[in-house]
Nucleic acid binder design. Structure first.
Lengths: 339, 339
DNA sequence: CTGTTAGCGCGTTCAG
DNA sequence: CTGAACGCGCTAACAG
């Protein structure tokens, strides 16, 4: 009787009712004992129920639970692309942070274009996510207002729009540290390869660069900057333009490791040696930077911390408008040297 | 009456019933008209219902639908890590392929360790995925038998265990092409940095290397191989060992771009120039390879195709044991030259 | 602490 | 083709 005949291939799901019967309690009791959100009771029956559930191989039906609870326990993450290691690192960190709160992070990608971002958000929302983590916020975008109107909880990560809840790195400090490092090595003619102006991260790092340069008494007119996308290709193009504009540069600060790597490639092509002829600093400290033929000096960003704080902000209803800001660190490597 | 008072912040969900009432039909009709799996009818009422649903902003409640259907429309993907660009590319391709079938691909990472793999699978299964795509299969693992016993549909991607449904690249051909390329350039002393022996991809590429070498009449004793993990660090270590073993090598074939990059770094360190002193070939054609200071010759793998076929196999019940195999292509770049 | 009851929103019978 | 009715598995509210 109790040992049921499971015909091969018909995996007759064990339901909460089976557990209830086997344990001799009601199904609501089982439901409560197995509720991972509640502090787990240590009564005799509680333990017994958990044991029986485990023996029977019971697993809660998420669909049914979600329907009833009105929550899925999933949060949606939107990133430009996962093939960008920075974004992969962020997502992996968000996954871990979410798991610590018994949540599961699912991801959708855009190509950093606003309409793809809407699609991605709709896809995720249709899947029933309880909230959104956006790493693609644009300073000029109205998308977040839509989310607010629709009462969708969300938080920005890595980039901010200036008013939404956000968990970011201190980009201005990072930009300052990078530039200051070059200044300390004796460089004066320092070019900057910036990121797209709609990204707050790029803007912050640029501001840090200006701050350090100005502080060092270098005239603003000598601040050589150029804008690029966050890709290796555009880093290469930007490096070429920068060198054309100012052949006497002794250092370049690229606000992103990818663009820095592109720049490295281009510098090699045009016959400038790094660091003998020119020093280069990147940003993000992706694993690759340490293993380049010339290991790249870069700014380390604490993604784990940013992710943890993003999830906390997302879950905290009382924190509207709050912005958390994590400290970056300079990692000196072989791509920079004293002039 | 019909225009309800939505109190701010209480997003009173539009249900199928609201649509039914507004359209003057029963909810079951609405359900049918909106079923994306059925060929969409073009009757007057059908179009009308769809229009009204759109106007009202109706979106199906996935939890309720999943509960009723017994399927979530989600498939689970397991990869070692997303910070490995190869895996990010595979996952992005799987996402796209899944989307084409109205499925959503969620992902979990292991660290290429068998127990983390089990955890990842359980996590995904608890979330209710309809099937699994595994890129972490080991030739010696029994995990897939468990899945079969539990009637969980699954397919292997990139790596195979020799008997499960799989969608992989033709690794032996790829290994052959890479080695043959070096032979054609006049190299005879060719070292190989292999991958972990439990990965069929590594084994296949190694076999291709041996085939090409033997075919070229090079004695087996001169086949210089060494095993490494799929990481840049271990590529560096392996390159060092290889050079220590055989200082007269003129070429290295690394069965993975990451290990190739690690090797490049190490070669630089010990003062060997690429390609002047030694040629290097990688495998996978990750975007970075084209933008290294010395662009890397590598083997291109059609991830999109592999992903598409993986999803098709997963959904096809009649294809037990089938293995699809996609053709790789050699991409010659600056890291290899005639001896 | 426990059990009873009443749906959550939907898809699928099964009659018409 | 359509609509009425049922119930998927679970949890929240309530009553003991």
């Amino acid at each position: 009787m109790t040992t049921e005949d499971k015909t091969k291939g018909t995996a007759a799901r064990v339901t909460i009712l089976d557990v209830a019967k086997a344990a001799g309690v009601s199904k609501s009791s089982v439901s409560r004992f197995l509720d991972e959100r509640l502090p787990k009771s240590d009564s005799d029956t509680a333990r017994n129920v958990r044991r029986i559930a485990a023996e029977l191989g019971y697993v809660r039906d998420m669909s049914a639970a979600s329907l009833r609870r009105g929550k899925t326990g999933m949060i949606g993450v939107i990133v430009p692309r996962l093939t960008d290691t920075v974004m992969a690192m962020l997502y992996e960190a968000l996954q871990k942070a979410a798991a610590r709160k018994s949540l599961f992070a699912i991801v959708a990608t855009t190509d950093d274009t606003p309409d793809a971002m809407r699609n991605a958000a709709e896809t995720l929302l249709k899947r029933g996510v309880d909230g959104l983590v956006l790493s693609t916020a644009r300073l000029d975008d109205r998308f977040t207002t839509d989310l607010t109107e629709r009462d969708v909880p969300y938080v920005l990560a890595l980039r901010t729009d200036g008013h939404s809840k956000s968990s970011i790195g201190d980009d201005e400090l990072g930009g300052y540290l990078a530039t200051r490092h070059l200044l300390d090595l004796g460089h004066r003619r320092i070019g900057l390869i910036g990121g797209p102006s709609y990204a707050s991260s790029a803007a912050g790092r640029l501001a840090g660069y200006h701050k350090a340069m100005t502080e060092a008494g270098i005239p603003t007119a000598d601040h050589l900057t150029i804008e690029a996308a966050f890709s290796m290709e555009s880093g290469a193009v930007a490096a070429r333009q920068l060198i054309d504009m100012a052949p006497d540069l002794t250092a370049i600060f690229a606000v992103n490791d990818n663009t820095a790597i592109g720049a490295l490639s281009e510098l090699q092509t045009i016959g400038k040696r790094v660091p003998e002829d020119i020093s280069v600093v990147g940003y993000n400290d992706i694993p690759l930077t340490a293993l380049l033929p010339t290991p790249l000096t870069t700014v380390h960003v604490p993604f784990e911390q940013i992710a943890t704080e993003a999830i906390e902000l997302l879950l905290d209803d009382e924190s509207a408008g709050t912005a958390k800001c994590a400290m970056p660190t300079l990692i000196p490597r072989a791509s920079t040297r004293r002039i």
